[in-house]
C-alpha cells in the first residue's frame, strides 16, 4: 500500500519525519497499543523479568531463613531461641505466609524468579540464537546438507520433549556434578544441565521454523538480485533474509520462552529440576503439596505466579503473531 498522500507542509512536520524514518516501528507500536490484552500481558512479562533480576535485593528475608515464631520463644541465657514460624497464614510481616519449614513464601518467590524465569530466558535466547543461525544456513543452502539436517531434526522432534529432557538430565547432571570445574560448581550443575537440555530441545525447533521462513524468502526477487550483484552469502543471510524472518523469530521466541518456563517448572515439580533449598517455583509447589490443608498459601502463591506468568507469555506471543499477520496484509 502506498503512503497516504499529504501536502508538502505536512510531509516536513517532525511527526511525519519520525513516521517516515521509523515507519516499521511506528506501525508496530500503534498496533500493539491497539491490542490491550497483549499489551497488558507484555507489561506483566516485563515485570516478571525485572523481578528475576532484582528479586534478590527486594526480597524482605533470605530465601532459606527460618522465620522465628515470636509467640514461641524461649530465653536461654543471653540468646533468645524461637521455634520456627511454620505454616503461618499471610500477614503484614509475611504477605504470602510461610511454608512448613517456616520460610517466607514471598521472599522465596522473589528469589526463585531467577530460576523459573531467568534460566528459561537465558536458555531460550541461546536456542533462538543457535536455531536462527542453523535455520538460516540450511534454509538458504538447501540441497543435501539441508535434507540430512532436516531429517535429523525431524527424528529428534519425534521424541517427546519431556522424555528427551528426562533422559538428558539424568545423564548430564551426574556428569557435571563429577566435574571439578569451579565455574560449573558455582553456577550449579543442575542449572547448566537445564539450560543445556532446553538448548538441545529447542534449537532444532527454532531452526525448523527459521528454515521454513528462509525457504519462503530465498527465492524472492530481491535475494536473487543480491546474488546477481555478487553479494556474499553472509551479507545475503544477514541483510536480505534475516529482517524478513524477524516476525517468525519473535513469535517463535516468545512461544519457546513459554515452553521453557513450562519445562523448568514441570521438572521442578517432578523433583528432577532445581534441588532444595533453591526456591524454584515448581519445586516449591511440590514441597508445599503435603501441607496443602495446613498451609494452602504455600502452594497457591507459586501456582498462581506460574499461571500468571505462563498465560502472560502466551498472550504476548499471540499478540505478536496477530501483529505480524496484520502487517502482511
Amino acid at each position: 500500500m502506498a503512503a497516504p498522500a499529504a501536502s508538502p507542509e505536512a510531509r516536513r512536520s517532525p511527526l511525519a519525519v519520525l513516521q517516515r524514518r521509523w515507519w516499521g516501528f511506528w506501525r508496530f507500536w500503534r498496533r500493539l497499543v491497539r491490542q490491550p490484552l497483549a499489551f497488558a500481558a507484555t507489561l506483566i512479562v516485563l515485570f516478571f523479568m525485572m523481578i528475576s533480576i532484582v528479586g534478590h535485593w527486594i526480597a524482605p528475608y533470605p530465601y532459606d531463613a527460618v522465620q522465628p515464631d515470636p509467640d514461641r520463644c524461649v530465653a536461654r541465657g543471653e540468646a533468645v531461641r524461637c521455634a520456627a514460624l511454620s505454616n503461618a497464614p499471610p500477614s503484614l510481616a509475611h504477605p504470602f505466609g510461610t511454608d512448613r519449614n517456616g520460610r517466607d513464601v514471598l521472599s522465596r518467590l522473589l528469589y526463585g524468579a531467577r530460576y523459573t524465569i531467568g534460566l528459561p530466558l537465558v536458555a531460550t535466547l541461546l536456542s533462538v540464537a543457535l536455531g536462527t543461525g542453523l535455520g538460516l544456513l540450511i534454509g538458504y543452502t538447501g540441497g543435501a546438507v539441508d535434507e540430512v539436517i532436516s531429517r535429523f531434526i525431524d527424528i529428534l522432534l519425534s521424541i517427546p520433549a519431556i522424555i528427551l529432557a528426562l533422559v538428558s538430565l539424568s545423564t548430564v547432571v551426574p556428569t557435571l556434578a563429577a566435574s571439578q570445574n569451579p565455574l560449573v560448581q558455582s553456577i550449579g550443575p543442575i542449572n547448566i544441565a537445564l539450560v543445556l537440555v532446553i538448548v538441545l530441545l529447542y534449537t532444532p525447533i527454532v531452526a525448523r521454523v527459521i528454515r521454513a521462513a528462509t525457504l519462503g524468502l530465498r527465492d524472492r526477487g530481491y535475494v536473487e538480485l543480491a546474488k546477481l550483484r555478487g553479494e556474499s552469502t553472509l551479507y545475503i543471510l544477514l541483510r536480505e533474509i534475516f529482517p524478513g524472518v524477524v516476525p517468525a523469530l519473535a513469535v517463535e521466541g516468545a512461544l519457546r520462552f513459554s515452553y521453557a518456563i513450562f519445562l523448568v517448572a514441570s521438572l521442578g515439580f517432578l523433583g528432577l529440576g532445581a534441588q532444595p533449598p533453591i526456591p524454584e517455583w515448581g519445586r516449591m509447589v511440590l514441597d508445599a503439596r503435603p501441607t496443602l490443608t495446613a498451609a494452602p498459601w504455600a502452594l497457591w502463591f507459586p501456582v498462581g505466579a506460574i499461571a500468571l506468568l505462563v498465560i502472560s507469555v502466551n498472550l504476548m506471543a499471540d499478540g505478536l503473531q496477530r501483529l505480524y499477520q496484520e502487517n502482511e496484509r
Binding site: 514441570s266 509447589v285 502466551n314
Partner: peptide, 17 residues
C-alpha cells in the same frame, strides 16, 4: 481465544492441582 491461550501453556501440575 483467551481461554484456550491461557490453558494451553499452563503446566499440567497447575491445572491438575
Amino acid at each position: 481465544s483467551v481461554a484456550t491461550l491461557s490453558v494451553v501453556g499452563l503446566p499440567e501440575f497447575v491445572t491438575g492441582l
